[in-house]
Simulated scan of single mutants.
Amino acid sequence: MLDHGTERPACAPASGHTDGAGATTLITDLPYGPKAAEVAREAVAVALHGAEADLLDDARLITSELATNAFASGRPPLVLCVDRRSQTAGSLEVEITVTDGGCSDPSPSSAPTPEEEAESGRGLVIVEALADAWSLTTGTRGTRAWCRLTRGFHLSPDGTH
């Protein structure tokens, strides 16, 4: 959802979450252009405000890669959805989805291996390395890239965060 008055991403309660405790969904349109990744990173920072730095860094990098792929390989519109849910025992689950208007290339069954000297082509390899789960579904009517990150609070031996 986009707050059209400010042109900034807006957060809304997640649909389908039964207990309502700590669940937030952010949905925003991304510009169809080179700024897609930058806007996506900023939106993730808003959605994950207060999250651990490691989770935020991984989510921003993954989102940047998915938005870049959507712009480079897809058609408008580009849409980002970030679902944030607090889990039991203090863990946080984040699902990131980027959709676009489709492409003509078939869906890869796994992350492609880029040429060693290539300047691009590592996006899905990065997603695969950082995400706990991910999928990519491509088609002429739409493409959906999705991933899940789950992180828990790490306690030190004295029981503090």
Rank of each mutant, 00 (worst) to 15 (best):
R41T: 02
T25D: 15
S64G: 15
S107L: 00
T6L: 13
S110H: 07
E38H: 11
A59L: 09
A72H: 15
R84F: 08
D29E: 03
S64V: 03
A37Y: 02
S86W: 01
L149F: 06
P9R: 05
C81A: 13
G33N: 01
K35N: 04
A47Y: 13
F153K: 05
T6P: 14
A21N: 06
A133E: 14
S120G: 00
D29R: 00
A72W: 05
E115I: 14
A23V: 03
I96L: 14
F153I: 06
A43Y: 11
T138F: 07
F71H: 01
T140I: 08
W134K: 07
A21T: 08
P13A: 11
V98S: 07
D100G: 11
V98N: 10
T140M: 03
A70E: 06
A133I: 01
I96M: 02
T137E: 11
S135C: 09
A59V: 01
H17W: 09
T113R: 13
L155F: 10
D57H: 08
L48R: 03
H49E: 02
V125M: 10
R75G: 00
E65S: 09
L149V: 13
E42H: 08
R151M: 12
G139L: 06
V98C: 13
S135V: 05
V127R: 07
L30Y: 01
R85E: 15
A59K: 08
C147V: 11
L55M: 15
A53Y: 04
P9C: 04
H161A: 13
P76L: 04
S107D: 06
D83K: 04
I126Q: 01
T18F: 01
E115R: 12
L155H: 13
L48G: 06
S107M: 00
D132W: 02
A12D: 06
G20L: 14
R144K: 10
T63R: 07
E42F: 01
T24R: 10
T137N: 09
V79C: 13
A23D: 15
L61N: 05
D54I: 01
S15Y: 08
E38T: 14
E119P: 00
E93N: 07
L56I: 00
A45V: 02
V46F: 01
D158R: 08
T63K: 04
V127W: 00
E115Q: 14
P13K: 07
L55D: 11
L80M: 05
R148T: 12
F153C: 14
E93W: 03
L124N: 04
D29H: 04
T28W: 14
S107K: 01
S91V: 01
R151N: 15
V98D: 15
W134A: 11
A45R: 12
A21I: 15
T24A: 10
V44G: 14
G101T: 12
L55Y: 04
G152T: 02
F71P: 05
T88G: 08
W134N: 06
P9A: 03
C103E: 12
V39C: 08
D100S: 09
L130Y: 07
V79D: 15
D57V: 06
L56E: 10
L80N: 02
V82D: 10
S104Q: 06
W146C: 12
V79E: 15
V125A: 14
G121R: 04
A45S: 09
T138P: 04
S135N: 12
